[in-house]
């Protein structure tokens, strides 16, 4: 029979091996990508003004999408975490649909709903909000494919807040709004921020739905730049061009670095003590 001390050594060692194999799967393709591109290819991509325009556009659209995702997803997460109501299970299932639905289907569905000939599309157009091949189409796609992460993360975060902390805050003089803002929201900030980061990452990496509703973005407020595709579509276009794989691989390297820089920046901000215990809001 194995002694407990043996188990204490074997279990972490086995975990480390399994974890390392997954990390290897994450990292090795990127290593292959960077090795293929090389320094020359990398510099070529850095000098590609069209790529930077698509990055600038993607960051703007994803920023707006995450803002709207937080504005709508956090209240939904709160309702699901704190209230029991008829149809709650149905709502929870609907929240999961965008996670499993093929994103080409999302593109087709949004195209049908928002094409200028449809009632909804015509209405949006009349309000001066073009959707197809416009920034709002990209924002809608990002919201559709990513907001579920905000809802699910904030639902879990709100559920983890002890309701008695809210009671204590109320008896200490806080109105319901103050108790929510100073206790519930702050204590959940880490989970909500994690959801926002996942949503952002999901939106930036989207391509299928963009190919259908947002292949080339025409200037319309709040995007005042030149015509550009989102960054992922830009890379797709390079891949399909006659220039071969290298330009697409080079631009992909840059996109990976931009994403890594943003993740690292958020982590550093978190560590600097923006909020919550130990000065951080990301788990």
């Amino acid at each position: 029979m194995r002694a407990p001390s043996d188990r204490a050594v074997v279990a972490p060692a086995l975990s480390a091996v399994l974890a390392a194999s997954l990390l290897g799967l994450f990292v090795l393709p990127l290593v292959a990508l960077f090795a293929y591109v090389g320094w020359g290819g990398f510099l070529f991509a850095v000098g590609d003004a069209g790529f930077w325009t698509s990055i600038e556009f993607t960051l703007l659209a994803s920023g707006i999408a995450v803002g709207l995702g937080l504005l709508t997803g956090v209240p939904l997460g709160y309702l699901l975490a704190r209230y029991r109501f008829r149809g709650r299970e149905v709502v929870e299932s609907i929240v999961l649909v965008p996670v499993v639905i093929p994103h080409l289907v999302v593109g087709v569905a949004l195209l049908l709903l928002f094409s200028p000939t449809s009632p909804v599309g015509a209405f949006a157009q009349s309000l001066g909000i073009p959707v197809i091949n416009a920034i709002w189409g990209v924002v809608l796609v990002m919201l559709y494919v990513g907001a579920s992460y905000v809802v699910l993360s904030s639902q879990l975060a709100f559920r983890a807040v002890d309701p008695e902390t809210v009671d204590a805050a109320r008896s200490l003089g806080a109105t319901p709004g103050e108790a929510f803002a100073t206790v519930t929201l702050v204590a959940s900030a880490r989970g909500i921020a994690t959801g926002a980061l996942l949503m952002w990452a999901r939106g930036v990496s989207e391509i299928g739905a963009f190919l259908i509703v947002a292949y080339a973005i025409l200037p319309s407020p709040p995007w005042f730049g030149p015509v550009t595709p989102p960054a992922s579509v830009y890379i797709w276009n390079l891949y399909n061009s006659s220039a071969g794989l290298l330009p697409a691989a080079s631009a992909s390297c840059l996109l990976v670095l931009v994403a890594l820089a943003i993740f690292l920046g958020v982590r550093l901000l978190d560590r600097s003590g923006l909020s919550t215990p130990r000065g951080g809001w990301l788990s």
Binding site: D162, E164, D167, A168, A169, V183, A187, S275
Partner: peptide, 10 residues
């Protein structure tokens, strides 16, 4: 003061 004390963890 509730049973869990309701201290604010953050």
């Amino acid at each position: 003061v509730p049973p869990s004390l309701g201290l604010f963890p953050h």
